[in-house]
Write a protein that binds this DNA or RNA. Structure first.
Length: 289
DNA sequence: CACTTGACCTGTCCGC
DNA sequence: TGCGGACAGGTCAAGT
């Protein structure tokens, strides 16, 4: 599911909702997605307080007073929803969460806080995971060692952006955009949206992209990500924020999931094709090979 | 190394 | 209404 804007939205919600809460109990019957030794859970999670919530790429980092952190990847369908001690629903909806009462059949991990509130990790497809790791060890995780720079950081320049792609010179620009070791946080939605913005066909090889096109792509990646954060992310199917609410970026999407509808620049119909093994949406007039 | 493809899962949608 | 197949926001381990 979530790409950088969705994970950032969840991060901001959790930052507001769970800091300083004390973990009283944890339950999970899904060792594959919660592969933590019972002794570590007992020693470093139970009784610890949440001290911070951070994000790196599409990974959430929930820091604990024990010196450990919960490292969470939502993958395609993961959700982290906080429910207060007055209901079984996410806090964001007057009549309860948009995803129904929790826990439900997709609940993989439940954190119970000392004040009676809960944090649920739901994941329909079971690709996601929650790992308890010493906070200082996080930079040593293979993924963290490989992952590229954060594209929304103020000091990230167009030149750095372009130079990151040299390692993928002979792959399609879409495959390179999706490669987390090139740039952090871009996924299928924002790759399509940014390539439309820059008028670049997703199948174009990296080594055919001009400097001017890279410059425009840099601008568009940052534009669509910032806009999406402002809109609370994209709810294509499953995504909800920390309160169980949907994001509205899809109302502003220019090509993603808009096949058969017209391009806002030229009135040509958006088409769907397959690039880099992923469903891909383009305007065939604006984005030519 | 760089690059592509299949696998991991459950659920939904579409055509027959 | 049922059934098979394709497909879904991501990432890895294999393969070439």
């Amino acid at each position: 599911m979530p790409e950088l804007p969705e994970v950032e939205t969840v991060k901001r919600g959790l930052h507001r909702l769970i800091i300083n809460r004390k973990v009283a109990a944890v339950s999970s019957d899904y060792p594959k997605g919660f592969p933590n030794a019972a002794a570590d859970v007992e020693q470093f999670l139970i009784g610890a307080c949440i001290t911070n919530v951070r994000r790196r790429a599409k990974v959430l980092l929930i820091d604990l007073s024990s010196g450990y952190s919960l490292v969470v990847h939502l993958k395609m369908t993961g959700q982290l929803v906080f429910v207060d001690n007055k209901s079984r629903f996410g806090a964001g909806h007057p009549n309860g969460s948009l995803i129904g009462a929790l826990p439900d059949k997709s609940t993989r991990v439940t954190l119970s806080f000392a004040d009676g509130s809960h944090l649920y990790f739901n994941d329909q497809r079971k690709f996601g995971w929650v790992k308890l790791i010493p906070t200082v060890e996080i930079p040593n995780i293979d993924f963290m060692k490989r992952v590229g720079p954060e594209p929304l950081e103020a000091d990230f320049t167009p030149l750095q952006f372009r130079e990151r792609f040299t390692r993928r010179a002979r792959s399609s620009i879409k495959a390179a955009l999706l490669d987390q070791s090139v740039i952090a946080g871009v996924g299928n939605i924002y790759a399509d949206e940014a390539l439309w913005g820059a008028k670049i066909h997703p199948s174009r090889l990296v080594n055919t992209i001009t400097e001017a096109e890279f410059e425009q792509l840099y601008i568009e990646v940052r534009f669509v990500m910032n806009l999406s954060i402002e809109k609370g992310g994209s709810t294509n199917r499953n995504y909800v924020n920390a309160e169980g609410k949907k994001g509205s970026y899809m109302d502003f999407a220019r090509v993603f999931r808009r096949e058969g509808l017209t391009c806002s620049r030229c009135d040509t119909k958006v088409v769907k094709l397959r690039v880099a093994g992923r469903g891909t949406h383009i305007c065939p007039f604006c984005q030519q090979i």
